[in-house]
Computed example of a mutant assay.
Amino acid sequence: MSAVQRHAIVVGAGIGGLTAALALGRRGWRVTVCERAAGPSSVGAGIVLAPNALRAFATIGFDITRAAGRTLPAAMGLRRPDGRWLNRADGAALAARYGGPPLALHRSALAEALTAALPAGTVRHGVAVTSVD
């Protein structure tokens, strides 16, 4: 008798939902991602993935650096509205301290790479989830 494949429904095709879908899929689950937007969005800003985030992706077998390249920010931090730095970190110092550099990329590039790593048809756009049982 064959085992029944488990099926997960993930609500939302944001970075978290796509990452969850990829992790579940790599563990043998059949996954469907329901996203209410009509299609992928290129709206958004940049994101910096810290070395621990890159290690978490590596744990599920996903190498974002292959899909999106590697951009080491020279510096990063928080600024006040007037442009003055509140906190600043040197990219090379972060790489030395945490065992690897952070990765800067556009959010949509990360979402596209995650979607591309999923089996075709996993992400269903234009599907609003109205209740969960």
Score class of each variant (00 low, 15 high):
E112P: 00
G99K: 04
I9H: 14
T59D: 12
S2Q: 08
P101Q: 04
A120S: 14
A38R: 05
D63H: 11
A95K: 10
A95H: 03
I15R: 09
I9M: 14
V31H: 12
A104K: 05
A45M: 07
V33W: 12
A45S: 11
G46I: 06
P73R: 02
G12H: 10
A93E: 01
A56F: 09
A111E: 05
G99Q: 06
R66V: 15
D90H: 01
A53G: 15
A92M: 01
L110Y: 09
P51R: 00
P119M: 15
E35P: 04
R26Y: 10
N87Y: 06
N87W: 03
A95E: 06
W85M: 14
C34A: 15
I60N: 04
L72H: 10
P102H: 02
A8S: 15
R26K: 14
A96H: 12
A23N: 05
V132F: 08
G25V: 06
R107Q: 12
R88I: 00
T32M: 15
R124D: 02
G91A: 08
Y98G: 02
V48W: 03
L103V: 01
V43L: 07
S131A: 15
G16F: 10
A3I: 05
F62N: 03
T130A: 12
A3P: 04
G77R: 06
L18Q: 10
G12W: 04
L118I: 06
I64Y: 05
G100T: 00
V132P: 09
A117H: 03
A96E: 13
S2M: 09
A8G: 05
T19H: 03
R79G: 00
M76E: 13
L24R: 01
V127I: 07
V43Y: 03
L72F: 04
A75L: 00
G61D: 07
A117E: 02
S41G: 07
A58K: 11
F57P: 12
G69K: 01
E112K: 12
V132I: 15
V31D: 08
S2T: 09
R55E: 12
V10Q: 04
M1I: 10
P73W: 03
P81C: 00
A67F: 08
H7Q: 13
Y98A: 03
R6K: 14
A117I: 01
S41H: 05
